[in-house]
Write a protein that binds this DNA or RNA. Structure first.
Lengths: 153, 153
DNA sequence: GTCTGACAGTTGAGAACGCAAGCACATGGT
DNA sequence: ACCATGTGCTTGCGTTCTCAACTGTCAGAC
């Protein structure tokens, strides 16, 4: 109604809309072509990229829009269908690893093509290379990530 | 396992992590200081910025991580506590507007301070002005927004 | 050693969500 | 006018989520 649009709020709105749009597109594509919920896919993908194809539960939960308890149940389901298994952490016996199984890796790889295709269409096709790089750097900084390549400022 | 990081996937991961982090921070801050779930806040905020403080149901749903049915129930709840009311659309009698009530506006305004403070901390404090501008532009393009460039800085 | 406070993960109870079907209205063809 | 098809929103039902409380473990103080 009035002009309360400051740059913070506008940027946040845009970020939310963009993320929501892509998220919904991925959800639909994965469900349709790979019969795998997006959150499940993201868990498998994160595991596949981690040292030893395993991650601590809380680290997975922190990377995704899920609470710890939500992740507990999701991993329950993934374990039940054999895509993931739990393994207890020997240096901290409170901890639990979620570990990718061979089956999980196969399912993941089959879904990756769909995933990448959607990203191609929604991210790459709409942005320049520079924009994509800045987007990535900015989001990494917001997320407090190690910022894998800190080449450009 | 490691080498599969292409720029599309990395950018998407960063986008998700950033959005998730800020989303969770907002959720906690709003719940703690304004006793208002973030999704409810977002509905009120979107309505407040629309022509006549009203929006069609589906337009609200498209802007948020919700389906139409999810929004129906959320608006049910908001209507029940008086923050929003429904009004039928006279040009298309299938349609329904969600309209901000005076109470809703008051609640929204009280929550806005908390909201902006969190964005200040998580977005503005971690990015340069240029980065924020590019982030906004890129996300707008991804989301297919009109890309209004008249934001005051 | 024992205690205290914090942390990792799980669980029970209830709330919130999505899918698919349903209803009401709109639109275009004949 | 009529019917067929498509759209906007809601509802029933089953699934998935969160919150708070709980268990088991760790680390520091004494």
């Amino acid at each position: 109604m009035q002009g309360c649009h400051d740059v913070r709020v506008i940027s946040w709105r845009a970020l939310t809309r963009a993320h929501t749009l892509v998220w919904k597109a991925l959800e639909r594509a994965l469900e349709d072509h790979a019969d795998l919920p997006l959150l499940s896919y993201e868990v498998l993908a994160h595991l596949s990229e981690a040292e030893g194809e395993r991650m601590r539960m809380q680290d997975v939960a922190a990377a995704l829009p899920l609470t710890r308890s939500g992740l507990t149940r999701l991993v329950d389901r993934l374990e039940r269908v054999g895509l993931v298994r739990r393994e207890s952490c020997d240096v901290d016996r409170r901890g639990t690893y979620a570990v990718l199984t061979p089956t999980g890796r196969v399912v993941l790889e089959r879904a990756q093509a769909v995933h990448v295709r959607v990203l191609e269409e929604h991210l790459v096709a709409r942005l320049s290379g520079d924009e994509l790089a800045v987007l990535r750097a900015a989001c990494s900084r917001i997320a407090g990530l190690p910022e894998a390549s800190r080449a450009r400022t």
